[in-house]
Design a protein around this nucleic acid. Structure first.
Lengths: 345, 345
DNA sequence: CGGTGATCCGAGAGCGCTCTCACCTCCGGC
DNA sequence: GCCGGAGGTGAGAGCGCTCTCGGATCACCG
């Protein structure tokens, strides 16, 4: 824990190279319009002094920070129990570093944190924000709109406010759900149940809609609300077995739910997939591959989602910088999903 | 994606309140030494104009950023397959926001990224760094020492360089491993095998040492190298069954490894825990609770580790600011582990 | 050989803030 | 009633950088 010695400034480099500050600045920022011998001299001086630009001073005048906030609004600990979030973060990180941007992470716990985040974003510390807010009635999107920070959402936000300019990246939850259920139908199943996710999240709602698209007039008793957790899956599965003992398939809203359901099915003596076929969602590897039997599920490319979010945001910022309204504003993207067949269906 | 209007400056607030910039600055930074009526006037002006201090300008003069870098150096994707990292991050985040610090996340992929991180840290963009570098021969600790940024490590770094002032927070891997193996001994097991983690990480080495502490002259064939993954666990378990068919217990270096081992044991017809007792490490919930049977394992308080890292760093920075050498430098902390008994042993 | 661009470089003005220092109160003590 | 001091406030310098703009330099053409 030692301090760095006084760091060299532009001035110092300029002195050493025998040029003006302006010239050093030009070289440091790309070197356009400076003749080769001078460029060389400056580079050498920079090297020798170990000069690193002071970002604060630079931001002060350019009003850019080359930093993006990633806001993860998850009151539940759920995000932390699965690699979903980490993978997305990784995609984001890759894309941001490729464009020399820093990643400022804001995790919020509970409602009171929202104000803090809003203040931070409004404070102009970052050039833009990537926000994960998958809950209905989340105040965050509103706060952000108010803060006036360019933003891309992860997952379709539920939002009653002004929808103009709202950009998001999402998986095709509805389509994926349809594929899952159609697969079960294709296996000859007809009493197909659905354990939903937490219905305060758009992804859960969309997956339910996808299920309904295929099971047009499904027995309503075949639908039970879960909460994306294994425990919820167990509870829901138990209820289903009571309600509809004749069911022959289950589409669970995610893999953790499916894992819980599988356990209850096993306890009840049903064979999977012979008696009851099971399909999950997410393809959360450590879970989907570990279940008994291994889980047929719907895969989404999570890392790509993250990367895409970052790309969209940065592109938007560029456009922003060049001139407002040049070219089309970036628009939302919905990524396709694929069914991964394993043993459970 | 709209721009904020021109943001108000200190100057503007000062004008509105009819005071000088200096006074506004004083009020904004705590208001000491300013008389009440003035404080009130300034507060009102701040409110009305929606003034938010420009962090860049402030940093430029104070040389503080109120930002901490979190460096996650993990060439493998392993970190992302478990909630370990996310939990730690959460602990860190809580502690940092409690002290009004931002969290800048730096994820590195592969060796080339190290230079980038080193440059960033040396660039004085952050006040300190929290670094996860659990690999032997990692160049990162050296780079960081060189960058001269106050740093706390997550997990004991393996480091041949100057150890002075190296602060880390770690779990008691060795002690936890001892507890696990002792537990197995207590169950009357004597042919206790160990599937190690990736031995290029200090945690794996420490856990192996703990195993050896108890199994003083263990049959060397009972130790097989794994890599912290389920696949590695399967492979190692298969080998163990060939080498030592008489084994009656397995201590796996982590829960994922244990999950793989469990599967192979089941395939081979061994009953767990009757024939072979199994203990894992980490208490990675979605894994440990989902296995068949549920896993007895060693729990570490991961979130607390994160929080502690942040606290140690911030404390160090304070001391730094006040005056070098006042009070004891923060020193490393090793957190205790606890054995969680479930069904597998 | 003078004129005319084009090109390259430097001087200097800020960006918005903090912080030192001088000044200006206003109080109490002699 | 005057003076010393404490406490409150403002003026102004400066943090390290970018960027505009004017001046110097050079090539090239008529």
């Amino acid at each position: 824990m030692t301090d760095t010695a006084q760091r060299p400034t532009l001035e110092a480099v300029a002195a050493r190279a025998g040029v003006s500050r302006a010239t050093v600045s030009r070289v440091v920022n790309g070197g356009d319009g400076v003749r080769e011998p001078l460029v060389e001299r400056v580079r050498k001086a920079v090297e020798e002094l170990g000069y690193v630009p002071n970002q604060a001073a630079r931001s002060l005048v350019t009003r850019r920070h080359d930093a993006i906030a990633v806001v993860v609004a998850e009151p539940e600990t759920r995000v932390f129990a699965d690699p979903f979030f980490a993978l997305q973060l990784r995609g984001i990180s890759k894309e941001l570093t490729a464009h020399d941007n820093q990643l400022v992470l804001l995790l919020t716990e509970g409602r009171d944190d929202h104000a803090r985040v809003g203040r931070y974003l409004a404070g102009g510390h970052v050039d833009g924000a990537l926000v994960f807010s998958l809950h209905l009635d989340d105040p965050l999107p509103g706060l952000i709109q108010h803060a006036g920070v360019p933003t891309v959402f992860g997952g379709r936000p539920d939002w009653s406010g002004d929808r103009r300019g709202v950009v998001y990246v999402d998986s095709d939850n509805r389509g994926g759900a349809r594929d899952a259920v159609r697969h079960l139908v294709g296996l000859g199943r007809s009493r197909i149940a659905h354990i939903t996710g937490a219905l305060d999240q758009t992804s859960a709602v969309d997956r339910l809609d996808g299920y309904r698209d295929v099971m047009v007039d499904a027995d309503p008793r075949l639908i039970v609300e879960g909460d994306f957790t294994p425990a919820g899956g167990e509870r829901a599965m138990r209820e289903l077995l009571v309600r509809c003992p004749d069911l022959d398939a289950v589409f669970a809203a995610n893999d953790l739910t499916a894992a819980g359901a599988l356990r209850v099915l096993r306890e009840s003596g049903r064979r999977v997939p012979e008696d009851v076929a099971v399909v999950g969602f997410d393809d959360m590897l450590p879970v989907a591959e570990q279940t008994e039997p291994s889980l047929t599920t719907v895969r989404q490319d999570i890392e790509e989602m993250g990367r895409l979010m970052a790309r969209l945001l940065l592109r938007g910022l560029d456009r922003h910088a060049v001139e407002q309204g040049v070219g089309a504003a970036p628009s939302s993207v919905v990524l396709p999903t694929t069914l991964v067949r394993r043993a459970s269906a």
